[in-house]
């Protein structure tokens, strides 16, 4: 009798979990024969910008009457490759790659080439790439220039200053701009604290990791830090906390992304000095237009690599900026 009871409870639990898991997954079901079918994917659905951009794409695509299916994972490219490959097999008209790591989606690229399906990319790497019919991204060099410039302004120049650089090499964009920032800093006469770029292991715990980096570094070198350049905002918030907890007001931090928590820190007039807003809605607009053109006429974009401008966010303009993750 216990056996049966146990089974009933087990099924109950399982279905409760299943329901909990399913309730969030929307998604369109198959439309008619001549609707424009798009397979959209991102491995960055766990990041605020990735999620909001792809969600917006799905909404707007469906408003245009497209049949959009969204495949997501939390940096699990194996899963994404499998899901999208089978979508290609079932037949789609176009693929949208949201914030892909071009090094890790070769199976999708090959499958799409074989089936003659164009891939439109948002932020698909930092250099032109024939895998995509178009890759619309932000200008990494401009991001590095603006943030390093802001940090220099806060510290009163770069010459002789010690700056920690916090990056995450598995992410192409962050890896690229942290290398650029490192070069700008050393060219300007600054020293990289600790001798090399500090690597965060996992984006999900980056705030805590950056907090530890800076706390421990300040313990060892109380006089050896003037600024922290961070490749993205969440880690920058952790660095800011470490500086606040050490009771310092002479060390400054810059980030990238302009997420809400970072904007809130900038407003406090504390160590968090500046961040950069990448115009993802603008990028999305442009991508939607390109895809619409392709859907209507079959014409592909002329340029396959578009870099859009970014905007620096400081105390001066922070109140006009909308957080990118809300």
């Amino acid at each position: 009798m216990r056996g049966r009871f146990a089974k009933v409870v087990g099924l109950g639990l399982a279905s409760a979990l299943a329901l909990a898991g399913c309730s969030d997954s929307g998604g369109g079901d198959g439309g008619g024969g001549d609707t424009f079918k798009v397979a959209a994917f991102t491995a960055g659905y766990g990041t605020p910008v990735g999620k909001s951009t792809l969600d917006a794409f799905v909404d707007r695509g469906e408003q245009l009457g497209w049949d959009v299916t969204l495949y997501t994972s939390d940096f699990d490219y194996d899963k994404i490759n499998n899901d999208v490959q089978s979508a290609v097999t079932q037949g789609v008209d176009a693929i949208l790659a949201g914030f892909p790591d071009p090094r890790q989606i070769q199976p999708i690229v090959t499958a799409a080439k074989d089936a003659d399906i164009p891939i439109f990319a948002i932020d698909g790497g930092v250099e032109p790439n024939d895998d995509f019919v178009v890759d619309i991204t932000t200008n990494q060099q401009q991001i590095a220039d603006l943030t390093v410039g802001a940090l220099s302004e806060a510290m009163g120049g770069l010459q002789g200053k010690n700056v920690m650089v916090i990056g995450h090499d598995p992410h192409v964009g962050i890896a690229t701009r942290s290398r650029m920032a490192e070069k700008l800093l050393t060219d300007g006469g600054a020293t990289i604290a600790g001798g090399e770029i500090k690597q965060v292991l996992s984006p999900g715990t980056s705030q805590e990791e950056a907090l530890k980096f800076v706390t421990d570094y300040l313990q060892a070198n109380p006089e050896g830090l003037d600024g922290v350049w961070v490749g993205w905002d969440h880690a920058a918030v952790g660095a800011t906390q470490a500086i606040n907890e050490a009771g310092r007001n002479d060390i400054f931090v810059t980030g990238v992304d302009a997420v809400g928590i970072a904007l809130a820190e900038i407003k406090k007039n504390g160590p968090f000095y500046a961040t950069v807003v990448q115009d993802w809605p603008g990028v999305l607009d442009e991508t939607m237009q390109d895809m619409q053109t392709y859907a209507d006429t079959g014409d592909l974009p002329e340029q396959n690599f578009v870099e859009t401008d970014v905007t620096l966010v400081t105390r001066a303009n922070v109140n006009e900026i909308k957080p990118t993750d809300s």
Partner: peptide, 22 residues
């Protein structure tokens, strides 16, 4: 292992995939 997977998913649902603050 099963709860690890499901509860991990619930955490994404609760946070909406973003970072909650404020």
């Amino acid at each position: 292992l099963a709860t690890l997977t499901s509860v991990g998913g619930l955490a994404f649902i609760v946070t909406g995939g973003t970072t909650l603050y404020g």
